[in-house]
Design a protein around this nucleic acid. Structure first.
Length: 222
DNA sequence: AGCCAGGCCTGCC
DNA sequence: GGCAGGCATGGC
């Protein structure tokens, strides 16, 4: 068990409180959000999702039947809209073909199997796959993102950023029990919250709840 | 007014 | 197998 990691989690809880991610009205909406938010401000994603609802397109079949051209117009506010329209369609094609467009059908598959399947879909990388698993399917898996890697570097935990190593390290740091899924949900959301406020590309570490500990390692300004 | 956001793929080396 | 370059809107 990595006590360091647990301590970071506790500090973030104290600083920011519970986050209750993922904001959405349905599990499918969560999945759509994971794709639309790739390298994108959440505010812009909200606009795109609102448009999808307005056009009655926020369903597997809705997206499947719509042309890429039209879909891209609807999601325009979130940016990278041509690529993301394709990515949404890639996901729903897989989802309908293999699971009949029913999320409950995923319950027959292990987390590892689903993850491998998601990673085969063009446009879904590790973070998106893990976000779907954790927030849409409630699977016991941690989501690493750019903020996590940056924080761990500044905190002096890891040198070279590495998705899988960081993910495993964090997963190993919490006892396997029924709470862990919720800890992972909160922890990732808290890291994003920290990242947005303090742990940006340009160091803005003043008042950061973890500033003191990062400072000790002397790597805060990397 | 720029810089950048809850990534990922492709195409070079 | 690592890494620049491209994708694009809107928030701050």
């Amino acid at each position: 068990m990595e006590k360091r990691i647990q301590r970071i989690y506790q500090k973030l809880c104290d600083a920011f409180g519970s986050q209750n991610w993922w904001p959405a009205e349905s599990r499918f909406e969560v999945i759509v959000g994971t794709i639309l938010t790739q390298q994108t401000n959440w505010k812009n994603v909200e606009k795109a999702i609102k448009n999808l609802k307005k056009e009655d397109l926020l369903s597997p079949v809705g997206i499947h039947k719509t042309s890429s051209k039209y879909l891209s117009e609807v999601i325009k506010p979130c940016g990278f809209y041509n690529i993301k329209a394709e990515r949404l369609k890639n996901f729903v094609s897989y989802f309908i073909e293999n699971y009949g467009g029913e999320l409950t059908n995923f319950s027959y598959q292990s987390t590892a199997v689903i993850r491998n399947e998601l990673l085969k879909i063009n446009g879904l990388g590790k973070e998106t796959a893990d976000s779907i698993l954790l927030y849409a399917l409630d699977r016991d898996t941690f989501v690493v993102d750019a903020y996590t890697l940056r924080l761990f570097k500044r905190y002096g935990i890891s040198g070279k950023p590495d998705y899988e190593k960081t993910k495993k390290l964090i997963e190993r740091s919490f006892e396997k029990n029924n709470d862990r899924v919720n800890i992972f949900k909160e922890f990732h959301a808290l890291i994003v919250e920290l990242g947005k406020k303090y742990c940006k590309k340009k160091p803005l570490c003043t008042d950061c709840p973890l500033a003191e500990e990062c400072m000790k390692k002397g790597v805060i300004y990397e």
